[in-house]
Design a protein around this nucleic acid. Structure first.
Length: 269
DNA sequence: TCCTATGTTGTATG
DNA sequence: ACATACAACATAGG
């Protein structure tokens, strides 16, 4: 489920546990989720330690501890964070549980495409420091976007938007939402966009990121909220979904190995 | 039973 | 060296 906005939503779920001591760390060291870190180091460091801050960059989350621990969590395709009551008994897919006096901080991921990373030291590890600049930052310029599209001229624009090295946090539904709003057919080769279309694309990338963060990321609801019905998001999941702008039936096809939804009335090759 | 799933990465090929 | 395409990872739910 998690893209930019959902990651932000789940990140905040652990807020009640920030500043509170971790009494125990529960995990299965051999779980695939720990393939990029040393789980015994994580247990040794975080037991008795305190998470002080959290932030998100793209689809990556970071929790920093008083003892210079850098805990990275990526939710993959099916991951989520939750807070559970004291005494919580971890289920099959609860791969990391930080037990506190009044609650447990839980990372669940049945499919285990997500990952846990861990580093101890005064400065940021590469896996955090080297994440691309946010699409909402000043570094994400029309010029940078243009150069990126031209270097990948023959690839469908849909596939390009999923590349985290330039669009950190954009995932499958956000990419489709952006292209729908920009009225660009997802199969358009990246190099075929004219400057006016690149301008529009740039604008809609930022619009969708900003509004998704507001509507989903900043929500205080217990579960993930849906964006308004004026968004493609709502209709792409329906069996006979129609374009909320034109009323025309939406099309679903696989592009670059990912399910892609668009409105044939708005988005033409 | 069969199909799909909001992600990433290693590998083969051009 | 770079761009491109795709199988593989592992599990649940329709």
């Amino acid at each position: 489920m998690p893209e930019l906005a959902e990651v932000e939503f789940y990140r905040q779920r652990w807020n009640p546990g920030l500043g509170e001591p971790i009494q125990r760390v529960l995990l299965h060291p051999k779980a695939r989720i720990f393939r990029e870190c040393d789980p015994s180091l994580l247990v040794a460091q975080l037991t008795g330690d305190v998470l002080l801050t959290s932030e998100a960059a793209g689809k990556q989350m970071l929790f920093r501890s008083r003892g210079d621990g850098w805990l990275g969590i990526h939710l993959g395709l099916t991951g989520e964070l939750s807070v559970q009551p004291a005494g919580y008994a971890p289920g099959k897919s609860d791969h990391l549980v930080l037990v506190q006096h009044e609650r447990a901080l839980v990372f669940t991921d049945p499919r285990m495409f997500g990952r846990v990373q861990f580093h101890v030291g005064p400065s940021a590890p590469a896996w955090w420091a080297e994440i691309a600049p946010p699409v909402l930052s000043a570094a994400f310029t029309v010029e940078a976007l243009t150069a990126f599209l031209h270097r990948r001229a023959r690839t469908p624009i849909k596939s390009i938007l999923l590349l985290q090295e330039r669009f950190p946090g954009i995932g499958n539904w956000m990419a489709d939402e952006i292209l729908w709003r920009a009225a660009l057919h997802p199969r358009r080769p990246a190099g075929s966009l004219i400057p006016a279309e690149i301008n529009t694309l740039h604008h809609e990338i930022r619009w969708v990121a900003e509004n998704a963060l507001q509507v989903i990321g900043a929500a205080k609801t217990p579960t993930l909220p849906d964006p308004p019905k004026s968004w493609l998001f709502v209709h792409r999941r329906e069996a006979e979904g129609k374009c909320p702008q034109t009323g025309v039936p939406l099309v679903h096809e696989e592009i670059g190995g990912r399910n892609t939804c668009w409105s044939p009335a708005r988005q033409k090759l």
